[in-house]
Amino acid sequence: MSSEANQHKLNPNTFDMDGIEVPFKDGQTIMDAALAAGIYIPHLCHHPGLTPHGSCKLCMVDIGNKCMSSCTTPAVAGQQVSNNTPVLNEARKTITQLLFIEGNHLCPSCEKTGNCTLQAMAYYLGMLEGHFPQFFQRREVDASHLTVMLDRDRCILCELCVRASREVDGKNVFAITGRGVTAHLVVNSPSGKLADSDLETSDMAAHICPVGAILIKEHGYEIPIGRRTFDLHQVGEIGLEKMIQAKAGHTNE
């Protein structure tokens, strides 16, 4: 038996990613296994502990010449996975450009700048301009809630707030309705307004938004530009999502 065969026999639960042997546990996705091994796969809709969704498509990897979402694809022994390639990163940059022009993401004037994962992803992928014509969509802003504001202009439909509200907060405050260009975030309340929902400032759903679609009122610009999360950290740092949630006082472990 060859040394390679002996190695696989000793470590049957591994797959190859860009030439690196990645161990995994039964039931883990490629994303979870990669992150556990300290390997970053770009993503926006994934969050540790929440049900994988596969909506942003930034985490797509190449498996046998097929593009698959790594956050929803189970790890399988012996898989040959490509992640950090020029072709995949160019596709990821295009997706990021589309997310920017489909919403109104004006970084210099946004309170979320420096703390925005979408902005950090653009830097990570080398996106220096929008490339596509801006949509300038008009989406409803909901400022009815006493402490939380909802700006749908910035929503990227990642459903993190939907899953956090349902799976962690146990409230089911948010949902996505419509398809294609009509898809948008809605509030599950009699009036459709945040004020009539049971959302609280302490809820995970109020803090998990990766962009500036959900903001806590009267707390803007508390951290000066230059000291914000992505002023000090790269988006590819492993465990950064958990650190951000821990700072906000919201964990789901």
Rank of each mutant, 00 (worst) to 15 (best):
C158Q: 03
R227C: 05
L58S: 04
E253F: 12
G130P: 08
I244V: 05
T251F: 08
N6R: 14
G192T: 09
R227H: 13
G249A: 11
G180R: 11
P133G: 09
D18K: 12
V22K: 08
D151S: 08
F24R: 04
D62F: 14
A143G: 02
F135T: 00
E237I: 08
G180Y: 11
A91S: 14
N65Y: 11
D231C: 09
F24P: 03
T177N: 09
C45Y: 05
Y124S: 01
T177Q: 12
K66W: 07
G54I: 11
G54T: 05
A37Y: 04
Y124D: 03
T51V: 00
M243P: 04
N172I: 14
F136L: 06
I225T: 00
Q7A: 05
V22G: 01
E90I: 07
G126I: 07
K112F: 00
K217E: 00
L157M: 15
S109C: 05
M1E: 05
I238M: 06
A36C: 04
G178W: 11
Q234V: 04
L44H: 04
K217G: 00
M31P: 03
C107I: 15
T94P: 03
K112L: 05
N11M: 14
H184D: 00
M31Q: 01
L58R: 13
A5K: 09
R163G: 00
I30D: 01
D142I: 11
R179Y: 01
N188E: 11
S144L: 14
G27R: 15
A213E: 07
A34M: 12
G239V: 08
L157T: 05
T229K: 14
I223P: 04
D198L: 10
G19R: 13
K193G: 00
A164P: 09
I39R: 15
T251G: 06
R166K: 15
N83A: 09
N104M: 10
N188T: 04
S82K: 15
Q137G: 12
G54N: 09
L185T: 01
T85Y: 07
N13K: 08
G180L: 14
I39K: 15
Q80G: 00
K9E: 00
R163D: 03
I95L: 15
R163Y: 05
N89Y: 15
A34Q: 04
S165V: 06
E222N: 03
M204I: 06
G54W: 14
D16Q: 05
C71N: 03
C59R: 15
